[in-house]
Nucleic acid binder design. Structure first.
Lengths: 203, 203
DNA sequence: GTCTATATTGTGATAGAC
DNA sequence: GTCTATCACAATATAGAC
């Protein structure tokens, strides 16, 4: 344990995060991670025995960027319409800070669906309770009939999709203009919130 | 050109499609494609000079599974509410027939965003006209104020997300039970259509 | 802890016989 | 058109000096 250990480990993790998230596990190269971190391959293997272990660290971290906050907000004791506003707002904020993580996590889970089981002990238990609670809140609020599952998927999908789909959305809908896409994203918080709340309101 | 050429080419393309869509470009191996096709690597390179060219064929095909149909439906001269119903219905049908293509195409476009330009000559031109037409239809129908872009993204996102997110959605929301997820997807057509039409209706 | 050098295996691609 | 054999290089991982 020399004085540089913590620092080097952070350099490695930062580099690994960038490379893995950009290229995925299969596209990432240990050499490139080492170069980005400003060290050599051997030192990578000194800190993390294998590419798999290094990836595992990055993937876990990425996964946890999103899930805890979701559960936290959805289980807070506030009125449903406010909860939805807060959820959309916070969720899009988190994505804006980590715009490439959703595509990364979803791709890696599709590549290896079994991986989710390692991350579930927390996630799985909490979900059941949250959903039945949400289901009650929907009824109490006098909203239209919709299952808690459908509503959750709608909310998350509406927030995430523009980012996952950016490489196809931007060129087709906004041309090469980054600014027009950014404006689109900026207005998304308001637009998605309006859209969802209106969809839930009886006529 | 022997009698088997067409047949072999189809074997190769079928195998390549399966492997590339399952594992992505970086995860796919020419050896595995050859094995799946029941031939050897050399023959792969005889039909497609390189892995890139073989991938290109598969990717183009996958991309075109979705985009033409979208434009076709959205430019058909029917009433907007019917158009939306038809769109959701057809779009989810297409995904059900090719459930892994959306994740595949979006991942490969994120891995190499420049690639979209090769596929745009058709796509790009048509989009502009469709969007301004859609914008008019939204106003004429007396719906809430929403841009054509926001509406399109909402419709596509609500259809696609459950499939891209399946590896995380199913375990968390429905446990290991495939049937409960299938039921969920089955009801999605109706649910998404209701959700969107209600969101568009003034109160 | 960090480096250089190297072992070992994997992988895309081609040569050449049939 | 199809095969076997092989090349050339890329990539993960380790050995061993400092």
């Amino acid at each position: 344990m020399s004085g540089n250990e913590k620092n080097t480990e952070k350099l490695i993790l930062d580099a690994a995060r960038n490379i893995f998230i950009e290229k995925g596990f299969d596209g990432a190269r240990m050499q490139e991670i080492a170069d980005t971190a400003g060290i050599n391959k051997a030192l990578l293997h000194y800190y993390y025995r294998s590419k798999d272990q290094l990836f595992e660290a990055v993937f876990r971290e990425s996964f946890n960027t999103f899930s805890p906050r979701i559960f936290e907000i959805m289980s807070s004791p506030i009125e449903l319409s406010q909860k939805i506003r807060l959820f959309i707002d916070s969720y899009i904020d988190i994505i804006l800070e980590n715009p490439h993580i959703p595509a990364f996590v979803l791709h890696e889970l599709n590549r290896n669906p079994g991986r989710i089981k390692d991350l579930m002990p927390f996630t799985g238990q909490t979900a059941g309770g949250l959903l039945s609670a949400l289901s009650q809140e929907i009824k109490s609020a006098g909203y239209v009939e919709i299952s808690a599952q459908q509503l959750m998927i709608n909310m998350i999908g509406l927030c995430i999709f523009p980012f996952i789909g950016r490489p196809i959305i931007q060129p087709i809908l906004f041309g090469n203009d980054d600014n027009r896409f950014d404006e689109f994203i900026q207005s998304r918080k308001t637009e998605v919130t309006k859209f969802i709340l209106n969809a839930l309101t009886k006529k």
